[in-house]
């Protein structure tokens, strides 16, 4: 594929974040807003890095292994949090992510604080574009599938969903597995581009970025978060002409969107709710 010069890393990181966001969207659709996205990405990176560097695995099987690891861990985390209330679930995923970062930090085999380096460069622009298209396709098909509708039902009203024969347990575990598998595969792609996986990039502040993408774009429509992930990744670079002010502007943009577009950039007109506003855009005040 042609070279894009200065823009190439920006495009690649935007698309990587798009893959991560697509995974998080799937997980969040059933009401599990995971705060461990960066941790899953890091796990995928470590798995693929170790397999290719120390065991000479080829690229594709290593990514598949990373996705599998993500699915297993995601399933376990979903099973652990299945009975938890919404707020506690978020906090548990937060703590899970931090714990994963600490564990990676304290395994000398993985390079400890310096991270795992010496990873072969495999990921090309073409790979990223194909992977991003694949992630978009999966998320899009999921969005309109029976499972997607079951997820929304579980998110909006678990009781009504189970009364209509939707298994909460199954839906939540499957969506968490699928989402985490995509995130881990994205993490593996990132590892073979950045050539370094460190525990610090698995932390809470990094995970929060993806939640910002999700809420900024709006949880009601798939295209919202995907658009936001690309816009917000590119924003600090595009704003580079403002040099030192760019991060300040970045913060300002986030504040303004949260204050003035409560449901995110892209919204449905009416009727459907979101994870943050389950009763729909104009929920009646319970007190009146």
């Amino acid at each position: 594929m042609a070279s894009f010069g200065f823009w190439e890393p920006i495009i690649i990181f935007s698309l990587l974040n798009l893959i991560f966001t697509a995974g998080l969207y799937i997980t969040a659709l059933s009401g599990q807003l995971s705060m461990a996205t960066a941790a899953f990405g890091g796990i995928g990176g470590y798995v693929s890095a170790v397999l290719t560097t120390n065991f000479d695995w080829p690229f594709l099987p290593a990514i598949a292994a990373a996705a599998l690891a993500g699915a297993v861990l995601g399933g376990l985390l979903a099973a652990l949090t299945i009975r938890m209330r919404d707020f506690i679930l978020k906090l548990t995923t937060l703590a899970f992510g931090e714990a994963m970062a600490v564990i990676a930090f304290n395994i000398p085999y993985l390079g400890g604080a310096n991270g795992f380096s010496g990873i072969p460069l495999y990921t090309t622009m073409t790979d990223i574009v194909i992977a991003a298209l694949l992630a978009i396709y999966i998320a899009w098909r999921f969005d309109g599938s029976r499972l997607g509708f079951a997820s929304r039902a579980v998110r909006d009203d678990p009781l009504a969903a189970s009364a209509n024969g939707v298994s909460i347990r199954q839906t939540r575990i499957i969506t968490f597995m699928l989402g985490s598998a995509i995130i881990c595969a994205g993490g593996a792609l990132a590892a073979h581009y950045v050539l370094l996986v460190t525990p610090s990039q698995m932390g809470f502040y990094y995970s929060l970025n993806y939640i910002i993408f999700l809420l900024f774009g709006g949880l009601q429509v798939l295209w919202g978060p995907l658009l936001a992930s690309v816009l917000l990744t590119a924003a600090p670079e595009v704003l580079r002409f403002t040099s030192e002010y760019r991060l300040i502007l970045y913060g300002l943009i986030i504040v303004m969107v949260v204050l003035w577009r409560p449901d995110g950039l892209l919204t449905r007109k009416k009727g459907e709710g979101s994870a943050l506003n389950p009763l729909g855009p104009r929920a009646p005040d319970p007190l009146t």
Binding site: I248, G251, L252, L276
Partner: peptide
């Protein structure tokens, strides 16, 4: 609650930088 976290985090990014 999560939206409040994100908006104030935006403020934090502005203040720090």
């Amino acid at each position: 609650v999560l939206m409040t976290l994100i908006a104030t985090l935006g403020v934090a990014i502005m203040l720090e930088n």
